[in-house]
């Protein structure tokens, strides 16, 4: 028995990389599922509650959205891509502390940890969104106008969140108090990200200000992809892609710089 040691199978650098991320992904999934189901109920409950609350304010004030847009679905589907961004940011931002003991495996890099976390978060949020859209189709007869564009929009949300989350995680290594501003910051972002309104509803000075925020473009695109020409979207995809690229490059560079400082705080 003792002589019969499991042998490592030879593999290329790329497949080794995928294997490492796969191992981390499975581990993240087990630890997340293991820690109680309440978190999953909340994943559905939070967007549901928010959308219901805003819809009822609308109903009470006898307001309605332009072009007969469905109130509840409008708010739910506007909020969900933002929720994906926010969860990815929050999970990535404390990814280092949660995984510090894993860094004792030479083959695991900080980037691997972050990628595994973000992919898992993205898949969980995508599952929640799929359920909402299915409900929209079955009960409200609302079919996505451009499903492929919607998926691309979600991907952009995720990549923005991933880059920003990596950057925040790296900054925390250099300056710990950054940890405290992560949550407030994602809250501040909510009202200025066109989550609960359309840019087109705003006066033009406000529009200009809002359009600095790349998330606004993503949310506008997503709403158009879902509701079609009942919305008047304002977006600039190259602008969003520039942000994605910049945040991810900064995030990767930050993690690289953080790695050599980490052991000082390690066990």
């Amino acid at each position: 028995m003792i002589e019969d040691i499991p042998r490592r199978l030879p593999s290329s650098a790329l497949s080794a990389q995928i294997r490492v991320i796969g191992a981390l992904f499975t581990r993240e999934m087990l630890t997340r599922f293991g820690s109680g189901r309440a978190g999953y109920i909340w994943l559905f409950g939070e967007p549901m509650l928010l959308a219901l609350m805003i819809s009822s304010i609308h109903w009470a004030r006898r307001e309605s959205l332009p072009n007969g847009l469905p109130t509840f679905l409008f708010y739910a589907l506007s909020y969900l891509p933002f929720m994906m961004f926010r969860t990815i940011v929050n999970r990535s931002a404390n990814g280092i502390q949660a995984n510090i003991s894993l860094l004792f495996h030479r083959s695991i890099s900080l980037t691997d940890v972050m990628v595994a976390r973000s992919v898992l978060e993205m898949m969980i949020c995508a599952a929640v969104i799929t359920i909402f859209i299915t409900v929209a189709m079955v009960f409200f007869g609302e079919y996505p106008h451009q499903p492929a564009v919607f998926i691309a929009g979600l991907l952009m949300s995720a990549l923005l969140g991933h880059g920003f989350g990596m950057l925040l995680a790296a900054l925390q290594v250099f300056y710990e108090p950054v940890e405290r501003i992560v949550h407030p910051f994602t809250y501040i972002l909510m009202p200025i990200s066109a989550t609960f309104y359309m840019v087109d509803m705003m006066p033009s000075e406000t529009r200009e200000f809002l359009l600095w925020n790349p998330l606004v473009h993503v949310h506008e695109l997503n709403r158009w992809a879902q509701f079609g020409d009942r919305t008047v979207p304002h977006y600039d995809i190259p602008y969003v892609l520039t942000w994605i690229l910049a945040l991810n490059i900064l995030g990767l560079a930050g993690l690289r710089a953080a790695r050599s400082r980490l052991s000082i705080m390690g066990e």
């Binding site: 499991p6 199978l9 080794a16 499975t26």
Partner: peptide, 10 residues
């Protein structure tokens, strides 16, 4: 299983 996945053993 985590170690097996990580180091590529069966």
């Amino acid at each position: 299983r985590f170690i097996a996945r990580l180091y590529g053993t069966p």
